[in-house]
Write a protein that binds this DNA or RNA. Structure first.
Length: 465
RNA sequence: GCCCUCAUCGUCUAACGGUUAGGACAGUAGAUUCUCAUUCUAUAAAUCGGAGUUCGAUUCUCCGUGAGGGCACCA
């Protein structure tokens, strides 16, 4: 059995979206699972729509998601590696000419209207096509049988000649795709089900070249979630672009894990799995046949689960990277020890890195906002003014050296007044943070320090007198 | 219109032809923690319809229906 060689062949004509990422992932997983090669080929024959920026985005997105390629352009875009290049179709014109000549010589291609057409074999007849509103020439021939790893045998009649070189001299997708897969010795073509109808054309081309087609595996599509509408995910849909998750500081391994579960499962109830485990278990016949609707909430949940288990150092690195892009970067990152302490208080509480700035704002500025609704609620209960005054009196002599000592101080105060910890917690939190959500109040007190706590309590009390 | 594919809770999915149809996300209700979040417990929620094969069908077959994709000198 020869080595598995799979390829991901994107066009740099737009943002890198989730469907492309999933196709890339299944190819990558299969290559890694089988010990084969994962090849990146850039299909940039559409000169009008290509852009170097989108090309860069392909490299960056794959790299960010952890999908390394064995052959193809280098991740930095400079040079390439592999013995079957060039890996950009724009640089393969000579190869295409050679293969075109082969078809011409074999009588399987001909010119018409300035373009070159692939010639189907069989008896010809004319028929009116009411989708294209014109008369077309068809060919009677046995249907193409595609033996698909996921769908079984699929039969489809391929009954018309089709263009392989445009009148502008450029080859079209079907032709370059097949020629490249032949010359790059691709063993398995794993691609979206939207290509299933193209595959019969491709099989005829392989036959025209006298080459046995590779193994096909057409994976299900990713569809819009019910609230987004109908049809497959498109670039315009919310949450469709990998770039968006990157900008929102999602963890790439969470995205990979979520994506792997769209159309595949390990055969048991496990969902959260390290990528090495997914690689170990992934296989083509286990891929589902039905399309999957995208669920942003489940992705967000997966991201949170991954975030919670990050070791402190990784979380701090992520947080630092995030804050460096924020307006408050200078203040927030000024004191490393202070930053570390606060980030580690926040880690078990947040659902995503992107919440960090808002969640920790009051640690870094005195002009934090006060949530009006929370204020209304807290002020309506008990005697908050009295509690504040008592806290202000108690704080100067309290021990702020640890969470436990702060807690003791508040509990002593409460006991002396015949009250509970909770009677002080809510109003203290409101005064010091402006909200009702956050880490434990004792930790907030300790980290903020006596002076700032006292100042905030006094300021808040003054504001409600 | 023609061709191809698919069909289990709202969503992602599991179930050698024999299970009280399981898990997860999202709901709902409780519990726990100083708040919030986490966590935990409980709860509601599905085999598209109709025939057939079979002792027995979510599972196999056919017909409907629904969903998705394709039908270019885009990829």
């Amino acid at each position: 059995m020869s080595q598995v060689r799979v390829r991901f062949a994107p066009s740099p004509t737009g943002f890198f979206h989730i469907g492309s990422a999933r196709t890339a992932l299944f190819n990558w997983l299969y290559a890694r699972h089988t010990g084969g090669k994962f090849i990146l080929r850039i299909e940039d024959t559409d000169q009008a729509r290509n852009s170097e920026e989108f090309l860069r985005l392909i490299y960056d997105s794959l790299t960010w998601l952890g999908m390394d390629w064995d052959e193809g352009p280098n991740p930095n875009g400079i040079g390439e590696r592999g013995d079957f290049g060039p890996y950009r179709q724009s640089q393969r014109a000579d190869i295409y000419k050679k293969y075109l000549q082969q078809l011409l010589d074999a009588g399987r291609a001909y010119e018409k209207d300035g373009a070159v057409w692939f010639k189907m074999l069989g008896e010809r007849y004319k028929v009116y096509d009411d989708h294209r509103k014109k008369e077309v020439e068809r060919v009677k021939a046995a249907p193409v049988v595609i033996d698909d790893q996921i769908r079984g045998k699929v039969e489809r009649a391929e009954d018309e000649d089709f263009v392989i070189f445009r009148s502008d001299g450029n080859p079209v997708f079907h032709f370059v795709n097949v020629v490249d897969d032949i010359t790059m010795k691709i063993s398995h073509i794993i691609r979206g089900e939207d290509h299933l109808s193209n595959t019969s054309k491709h099989v005829r081309l392989y036959e025209g070249f006298g080459v046995t087609p590779p193994v096909f595996a057409h994976i299900p599509l990713i569809l819009k979630s019910p609230e987004m509408g109908q049809g497959k995910m498109s670039k315009r849909d919310k949450g469709a672009l990998i770039e968006e998750y990157r900008q929102r500081y999602f963890l790439p391994e969470a995205i990979v894990n979520y994506l792997s579960l769209l159309g595949w499962n390990p055969g048991d109830d496990r969902e959260k799995m390290p990528v090495a485990e997914i690689v170990r278990l992934f296989d083509l016949p286990a891929v589902n046949q039905s399309n999957a609707k995208f669920d942003g909430k489940k992705l967000a949940h997966m991201n949170m689960v991954y975030l919670l288990e990050q070791p402190a150092d990784r979380f701090l690195a992520l947080a630092k990277n995030y804050f460096q892009a924020q307006a408050t970067a200078q203040t927030v990152l000024a004191n490393e020890v202070y930053f570390r302490e606060i980030m580690l208080l926040a880690q078990p509480k947040i659902k995503g890195i992107e919440e960090l700035a808002a969640y920790t704002a009051y640690f870094f500025a005195e002009d934090f906002s006060v949530d009006a609704k929370v204020k209304e609620k807290v002020m309506a209960k008990g005697d908050p003014k009295a509690r504040l005054a008592e806290l202000i009196a108690a704080v100067p002599t309290a021990d702020f050296s640890s969470d436990a000592t702060v807690e003791d101080a508040i509990k002593q105060l409460a006991a002396a007044k015949g009250l509970g910890f909770g009677d002080y917690q809510a109003v203290a939190r409101l005064a010091v943070t402006g909200t009702n959500a956050g880490p434990s109040i004792t930790a907030i007190f300790r980290v903020l320090g006596k002076e700032r706590v006292l100042a905030r309590l006094q300021k808040f009390l003054a504001g409600i007198q």
